[in-house]
Write a protein that binds this DNA or RNA. Sequence first.
RNA 1: CCAGGGGUGGCGGAGUGGCCAAUCGCAGCAGACUGUAAAUCUGCCGGGCUUUGCCCUACGGGAGUUCGAAUCUCUCCCCCUGGACCA
Length: 359
Amino acid sequence: MTLEERIKLIQEVGEEIITDEDLKVLLQKDNQIIAYDGFEPSGQIHIAQGILRTINVNKMTKAGIKFKMLVADWHAYANNKMNGDLERIQIVGKYFIEVWKACGMDLSHVEFVWASDLVKDPDYWKLVLQISKTNSLKRFIRTAEIMGRDESMDLTAAQIIYPCMQTADIFILGATITQLGMDQRKVNMLAREIGPQLGFWKPVVVSHHMLMGLSQPPADSNQDKTSRTIAIKMSKSHPDSAIYMTDTTQDIKRKIMKAWAPEGITKENPVLEYCKYILFERFNEIKIERPDKFGGSVVYKSYKELEHDYENKQLHPLDLKNAVIHLLDQLLDPVRTHFEENKEAKDLLKQVQSFQVTR
RNA sequence: CCAGGGGUGGCGGAGUGGCCAAUCGCAGCAGACUGUAAAUCUGCCGGGCUUUGCCCUACGGGAGUUCGAAUCUCUCCCCCUGGACCA
């Protein structure tokens, strides 16, 4: 694969890359590139973390990069997920891994790492302290959005340590590319600043798109782009705003039917988002079956065509929804089968479903 | 540790001895209206029933006072705000 092809693939992943130039240099001089993403195991895993994550991981590995998936159990603990119950968090972590194994991820170039293993090394904590000393409290507090928190709300001391840990993760994992969501960019930027100061490198930040939630987006209050992304992203605190990886066919149907989808509007339309970022990534075409009185069946080969018709009201939301339901269901089927047939996985799912989700 | 203020249903927030299963808002659910959703309107919204009614469990935990307590007393736990301590 040529350098240009690799760059092109990575650009498909990154909604934002800091910087393209740094990426190019990195690809040229390093043949052992490691990229990473981290996850707080909390509650159920939704399709952005499952399918979208898989799509992006596979593009990265195809570009010759090794990918580390950090199961951030200690981070979730610090951030009080799952009621601050570390044992539950770890059960959820195992469940996440089962999902990733079952949804088509290129596992030959992926390594799962547990934060609880990283923290066993005293050098990890030394680095956390070094990092914490580089900037003022305020600077770390300003990264609160990475934890899904607002800097204006009351944070605990653990939530100050959290961004320091997340920065340390990058260097301990040897990640020269941080490939997380747009909501994580603040810490990654901080890492670019701190890295060289502490004798490490300046990681290339490849931030992927955040899939929006299914419900009606809140009014646009002249936020900047990142804040807006975070404001409308899928959230586990809004029950039906996300499709979970182990949802049943009925769940998918209910959620998509309830999804916000104004006719003719393509901006911030979750159903179209799913077509663009998920369905067209996994299927070659989307077939819409509809009665003759509404125009008969159509096949779309690209998102552009589909969007065009939708915008011109040639494609009705309901017809689209029916197709989306069917295709999403098809994508989740192997995952469901895995959790049905593998006893260990089945037990994990059962436990996870019995846990109450907390923010 | 001291002083003061608090802990109410998924969340926010009323209520300060009976009319309280608890005003109201949000969220949620059902229906009407739209070929989806949204908006709007109607009903439901602690649990269970033989559902114009009845039973159970409830207002941080426990113990009391009272015919009767979310509402009063005691006690314990937790949170917030100040302060003290930091040899």
